[in-house]
């Protein structure tokens, strides 16, 4: 018996969301009195053994470049094989782009109940109950998993990573893989940009910015804070910003440590996607903006005056 954690990579590097999944899976293993093992598919640039410090005893690595791009069907078969081999009772994914594609397939293949979007440790005192996000951040549901094998897809930024001591044993896996059917022909990646769902800090702006030409100060503030940029739905609908920046109920749901909302009124649909943020700062010239009710800190003021002052203050703080 063991806990298996899917460790996913981007361009050969282990994703931050995977570190959270490892720490979460290791904690579950500790609760169940068993050990945590990881699985990595495709070629990697990172040295995997040091990831043992996050709590995995072994990492199964299938080093095959055909697995460098995601084909959920092929991945599922391999992960199911390893899970069966090590008798995994709990399988943990990050609920990110890869986890969302693979975990549901694996659930069917192993007839294992899936909780996607988990936000807390399972309660194993009476059954196996996992708290997840529902109604796009407006509520939580406690889901009881009734199968022998359980699969959990952990929301990014929902579990804190802690590093201890230890080195993982690397187990080189050599099993044949099925033919890849989803062929990747092009990648369009904004290099150096912090992925929105993984970002610790997000600087987001809305219609109050008046037009796409005014986003320079938003980007500058984000860069200084090592933050990702985001926007409200009207901004993305008007094509001022790319649609992948849209956060809210019908865009991306995020849970950073700090969410700075500039010129966003805070419609209920927007709040739903961001209200799991640890700290929310709202800058809006309208004191009646509903967003202030959901905020921890706020400034009633014009973004065009406040944001440049924030940039100066952050520069001063960081000594740049």
């Amino acid at each position: 018996m063991s806990v298996l954690i899917f460790i996913d990579t981007a361009e050969g590097h282990v994703k931050k969301a995977s570190l959270e999944a490892i720490c979460y899976g290791a904690k579950i293993a500790e609760q169940l009195g068993t050990s945590a093992e990881g699985i990595v598919l495709g070629t990697v640039k990172d040295d995997l053994a040091p990831f043992g410090k996050f709590g995995v005893k072994k990492i199964h690595h299938l080093n095959n470049e055909l697995l460098d791009h995601l084909d959920a069907q092929v991945y599922t078969k391999v992960i199911a094989d390893i899970a069966e081999k090590i008798v995994a009772k709990v399988i943990v994914f990050s609920n990110n782009v890869d986890g969302k594609a693979i975990a549901p397939r694996l659930s069917v293949r192993l007839k294992a109940g899936l909780v996607s979007g988990a936000v807390a440790m399972p309660d194993i005192s009476n059954g196996f109950i996992v708290k997840k996000n529902v109604f796009s951040g407006k509520a939580f549901a406690n889901i009881s998993v009734n199968t022998d094998i359980k699969i959990i897809a952990l929301n990014p930024n929902a579990y804190k990573t802690t590093a201890g001591e230890g080195t993982a044993e690397i187990v080189v896996v050599n099993i044949p893989i099925d033919p890849v059917k989803v062929k990747v022909t092009g990648v369009n990646k904004t290099s150096g940009e912090v992925p929105l769902t993984e970002a610790e800090i997000v600087v987001s702006a809305g219609r109050g910015m008046k037009g796409p030409e005014n986003w320079g100060m938003i980007e500058e503030l984000a860069k200084l804070l090592h933050a990702a940029t985001a926007c409200s739905r009207p901004v993305s609908d008007a094509h001022w910003r790319p649609h992948n920046e849209h956060v809210g109920q019908t865009g991306t749901a995020i849970a950073p440590s700090l969410y700075i909302a500039i010129g966003i009124s805070g419609a209920i649909q927007h709040l739903a996607g961001v209200n799991r943020s640890k700290v929310i700062v709202v800058i809006n010239k309208d004191p009646e903006a509903p967003f202030f009710k959901a905020a921890d800190y706020g400034i009633v003021g014009d973004a065009f005056e406040v944001v440049p002052k924030m940039i100066e203050a952050v520069k001063k703080l960081k000594g740049v």
């Binding site: 659930s107 007839k111 294992a112 109940g113 899936l114 909780v115 109950i129 708290k131 529902v134 951040g137 407006k138 509520a139 939580f140 549901a141 406690n142 889901i143 009881s144 998993v145 009734n146 199968t147 209200n275 799991r276 709202v282 202030f292 009710k293 959901a294 905020a295 921890d296 800190y297 706020g298 400034i299 009633v300």
Partner: peptide
């Protein structure tokens, strides 16, 4: 494979510091 055992609403915010 799974069942909802209960729902919860998130705790209310303490209030904004302006």
């Amino acid at each position: 494979l799974t069942a909802i055992s209960s729902f919860e609403l998130p705790p209310a915010k303490a209030g904004v510091k302006l």
